[in-house]
């Protein structure tokens, strides 16, 4: 988020990152400071266009004097901070965060970098045992706060469950949900202000849900698909893309992405048309474009079929 303080009034000061002196600007986050000097910090729940919620805890770094690790995505820089991004504490936490996620969530469609981090941090989700059977339809949505079934530890509990397919535009495969809150933020004050979904329940039974788990067409959803656009793990996916993958014809090598402008109203949202076999299967919008920062409405996101 941009600061409201005029640039000329922002203080500049020094800190160290992994022992190297770095000059930063007041108001920056540790993550921004690190990226500025090409120090790589893995993130899952962070997105430039959303307010940091710092829940995945993958971006943690060590700050001298701090009892616990701190999340780089939300913590602002302070003068003379000594930041370590590669200490053994940091690496253990990152390894374990990835391990906890990979042992409980299907990450097979997550962004490519997740796979690279799994190797980099030597992640072994199988340490936690074989994965539990998927929950039945609606089972995870019926949970009562503060209660869970007795366990014997023979399997690692997961969030696996049937896919929710209740409209023609996109489907929700919460077996892939890492609860990064991005979709909730995009549906709420960070973009759409529709509030069709929120986090419900608590603990491991926490989930993204409409009220009483009603189907999307009954909910406040306006199918802008801004949640789909920010989902990092493929839990939210356009139906056309899903069916293309299911049909076995999915072929990333033959796909093209072309940037153009939405054919409907006068806002001028930029569209990225994802095309395979001369068919548009997905529409996204560049995050770094100042017109709408990646957000679209139902027409831009899903209203392209007239071309075909």
């Amino acid at each position: 988020m941009t600061s409201t303080v005029p640039i000329s009034l922002q203080r500049r000061f020094d800190l160290t990152i992994d022992g190297k002196d770095v000059t930063v600007t007041e108001g920056q986050t540790i993550l921004e400071a690190c990226r500025q000097v090409q120090v790589d910090i893995p993130t899952l729940c962070y997105l430039e266009t959303l307010t940091p919620v710092n829940v995945c805890r993958l971006c943690v770094v060590e700050v001298k004097g701090s009892r616990t690790l701190v999340s780089a995505c939300s913590r602002k820089v302070e003068p003379k901070m000594e930041i370590l991004t590669d200490s053994s504490r940091v690496n253990t936490s990152r390894r374990m965060v990835l391990e906890l996620l990979a042992s409980s969530v299907d990450l097979s469609l997550a962004d490519d970098e997740v796979g690279h981090w799994m190797q980099q941090y030597d992640v072994h989700p199988e340490r936690h045992g074989p994965q539990s059977d998927p929950a039945e339809e609606g089972e995870r949505d019926r949970g009562h706060a503060g209660e869970h079934k007795a366990i014997d530890g023979s399997t690692a509990e997961t969030v696996a469950q049937p896919i929710k397919r209740d409209n023609g535009q996109y489907l929700r495969d919460y077996s892939r949900c890492i609860l990064c809150y991005k979709c909730v933020e995009a549906c709420g004050v960070d973009a759409q202000n529709t509030f069709a979904i929120a986090v419900a329940g608590r603990g491991f039974e926490a989930r993204i849900s409409t009220e009483y788990n009603v189907a999307l067409p009954e909910s406040a959803c306006v199918y802008c698909g801004n949640c789909v656009a920010v989902c990092p793990t493929g839990a939210l996916m356009p139906t056309i893309e899903f069916d293309l993958r299911e049909s076995g014809k999915w072929d990333p090598k033959s796909q093209t992405v072309t940037q153009t402008v939405c054919p409907y109203c006068g806002v001028g949202c930029n569209l990225e048309l994802h095309v395979q076999d001369n068919q548009i299967f997905k529409v996204t919008s560049p995050l770094d474009h100042s017109t709408t920062s990646g957000n679209l409405c139902i027409k831009g996101r899903f209203g392209f079929e007239f071309v075909h």
């Binding site: 535009q169 999307l216 899903f302 079929e305 007239f306």
Partner: peptide, 14 residues
């Protein structure tokens, strides 16, 4: 959108 010649082609749940 307008007279629906473009939007008529996709099925909107709303």
């Amino acid at each position: 959108f307008n007279t629906g010649v473009q939007t008529g082609a996709y099925s909107s749940p709303i």
